[in-house]
Write a protein that binds this DNA or RNA. Structure first.
Lengths: 239, 239
DNA sequence: TTTTATTGTCTCAATTTATTACAATAATAC
DNA sequence: GTATTATTGTAATAAATTGAGACAATAAAA
């Protein structure tokens, strides 16, 4: 079988996406594993000749998660020559039954534009692409080693998410449309990896005047029921 | 004359740099003008096949400014298809006496990784490249219209600089190694485009404990001489 | 010697943030 | 039913930060 054609894609340019979800009080990332190689990597892809870069990333996310409108933000472009790993790529292609030509565009060097996405964990059942075996959620502190320098990309994604958390209140994008104050606090705690003070957190969130209060949620627990909140404006990093 | 050869450069990838300087109490940017076209643009360039992206940008800056170690930070990668302007590029090439081939790589679409640099205005005498006529400082609120979507790049660069100013105290990189508190305040005011309170500003800067105080500067003015300060740790966005 | 303009620092007020306290429940245990 | 338990929402107070003004200390000029 021949390698997928380069036709229609830009050369030397790729994107990678760090897709965050929140479940079991833990921040998780979608990682894919390539068929019969033991190689793990971030989901990524290429840009079509006549496609906006951001649209290419959205297209890839749609294919992987089925989701259309999600929080998505570009955070860095990685361009070190050391990122190239032809041997790993060759292994992956061979494991997928492709005939490998030394001149193949896939063995070439790519500069990768990295994005992070925030999605509601419950909304997705991730789909692997044709080269990969599986795509699964991994807690951010239990990631397998990643190829193609993707470890560094994840590290910077987490740092960016932390930096943006307060300024843009991005954590909301990891929750369902209605959530309790406690859930929001747990998201913040998972991202920052530290405990926050309940009263201060609550006052700060309400003080921002971007939360809308709804009916109470009767949890069945032996205590006062919490209110549900939703976000009352669009916070999207999409340009 | 034939168009410069594509040989040795990555395809579809370029970089653009927004180079800030501070002079006459005003924030300025280096803008180049192409020979006989009336077209203005940011200085940019291409990445060699076996060159790190960051190194390519540093190389370009060195050629334009003669400076080696300067504050440089990547801030966004622009990838809209609408950025392509083959007509303008063709005009530029013709004005430089090149035979233009419709297939030329220079007429192709580029995804541009944008960087901003902060330099000490007095340290440079900018050099135009072979395609351009001149390279000059322009106050940020008196820029000519720029081609290739560079207006948008400048806008985002200024916004990034503002966002980073307090967090990273980047303004220092626009000054000589020794400076007065007043000069530092003027840099901040130029970047934020608003007046700051002298006493509050001074207390905040000194409170950060990253300034070192030196001997007084005798300015020849009829008042108390100010201390000189320098920055006591490296603040570089270089990766 | 006095005047002028600016600098460095202090004080007090205003605002913001942290911490504690406590009343209000929704279910449970008796 | 009534007391108990585990939260939640909010108010009250303390601590920290920031804003605004005051003032003494000059370096040079008048």
């Amino acid at each position: 079988m021949d390698i997928p054609s380069k036709e229609g894609f830009l050369s030397n340019i790729a994107y990678d996406s760090v897709i965050f979800g929140f479940s079991g009080n833990t921040l998780k990332i979608l990682i894919l594993e390539y068929h019969n190689t033991g190689f793990f990597a971030l989901p990524g892809g290429f840009v079509k000749i006549d496609e906006d870069l951001n649209d290419a990333v959205k297209r890839g996310l749609k294919e992987r998660t089925g989701l259309d409108k999600i929080f998505l933000e570009q955070f860095y472009t990685f361009g070190k020559t050391s990122r190239k790993d032809s041997a790993a790529m060759e292994t992956i292609l061979k494991a997928n039954g492709f005939k490998v030509d030394k001149q193949s565009w896939l063995l070439d060097r790519f500069i990768s534009v990295a994005y992070y996405a925030l999605i509601n964990y419950e909304d997705v059942s991730p789909q692997p692409d044709e080269l990969s075996d599986s795509i699964n959620w991994y807690p951010i502190d239990e990631l397998p080693p990643l190829i193609f320098g993707h470890d560094e990309i994840v590290k910077k994604a987490i740092q960016t998410l932390r930096d943006n958390l307060e300024r843009k209140l991005v954590g909301i994008n990891l929750l369902p449309s209605k959530f309790t104050m406690k859930e929001l606090q747990q998201v913040h705690e998972a991202i920052l990896n530290k405990k926050l003070r309940r009263t201060t957190f609550q006052r700060k969130m309400l003080g921002m005047e971007i939360l809308e209060r709804h009916e109470k949620q009767f949890s069945g627990k032996a205590h006062k029921a919490p209110y549900l909140y939703s976000f009352n404006k669009v916070t999207s990093g999409q340009q």
